[in-house]
Design a protein around this nucleic acid. Structure first.
Lengths: 145, 145
DNA sequence: GTGAGTGCAAAATGTTTGCACTGGG
DNA sequence: CCCAGTGCAAACATTTTGCACTCAC
């Protein structure tokens, strides 16, 4: 498992808590919050503390193994895939979908000028996902989020 | 004034508080926080409440007149320029600089596939600004952020 | 008797918990 | 007010240390 590998390589002690958090993260398809991971973890290890979840997520982020995403509402989310990709955020259902950066739709140069040396970047597309769009077009009734 | 125009067009009542916040925003060169606007506003209207500042900023954002930026630390910032541009965020001094999107360094298509209809996007480059880079290269002594 | 190795408890180290608190919104 | 996230001290787990003991030679 990738995340466990990273911890091992950095001589971080592999406690049961860290093990559990890593496996939940790795299995998580889409960008969970710390709170969500905490709930999941408690189903398996009821004594798990929220603090530990945060601590572990910060460790993993520090090591570059995961990416924290601040998308504007509802707390930081964590992306178990640290490789470059953009995120599609649906304004209605809040879903977050990945888009590879190396596709014809997105192109960035790391030389942005102004003497700025780029170390990383984030791209967020906001809008409506396919299913919410269908809903909004199809049945215009009570479409509050 | 652009922001006032937008409020008027949407039949939002033009209270003295909203008027003040709009003018401060419009004058602000670089991405103030709600807190900063609040401080400014109180110099002129000492009874202004932080709550009102937030409310007004959210209204303006809702109408697409300004852009909230969640850059990961130090509170949400508000960009009075809603036109497409990326942001360079310096990890050392925290400065935020605009980069036009329509330059050779950045290119995005609004058709990102997956049935997602893009309504807006954000691009954040993280790294070191020119002056912090000079500092870090030049005098390697106590370069903690 | 001596050196290699074992058992065990105390000490040290590192981790987790729980709760109170802060600060943004 | 509410909620995401943090600080802190106490609880806990694991590793290391010191030392007394055993056993083979």
């Amino acid at each position: 498992m990738r995340l466990l590998e990273v911890l091992r390589q950095h001589r971080v002690k592999l406690t049961p808590q860290r093990y559990l958090i890593c496996s939940l993260l790795e299995g998580a398809k889409h960008h969970p919050t710390a709170e969500a991971l905490y709930e999941e973890a408690r189903k398996i290890m009821p004594t798990m503390s929220l603090k530990t979840v945060y601590a572990t997520l910060h460790e993993l982020a520090e090591l570059g193994a995961i990416r924290p995403l601040t998308l504007g509402s509802g707390g930081t989310r964590f992306d178990p895939d640290p490789s470059p990709h953009a995120h599609l955020v649906c304004r209605k259902c809040g879903s977050i979908t990945d888009v590879p950066i190396d596709n014809p739709f997105v192109h960035l140069s790391l030389d942005v000028g102004q003497g700025f040396s780029v170390e990383g970047y984030e791209i967020i597309f906001r809008g409506l996902c396919a299913s919410c769009r269908a809903e909004e077009d199809g049945l215009p009734e009570g479409e509050e989020q």
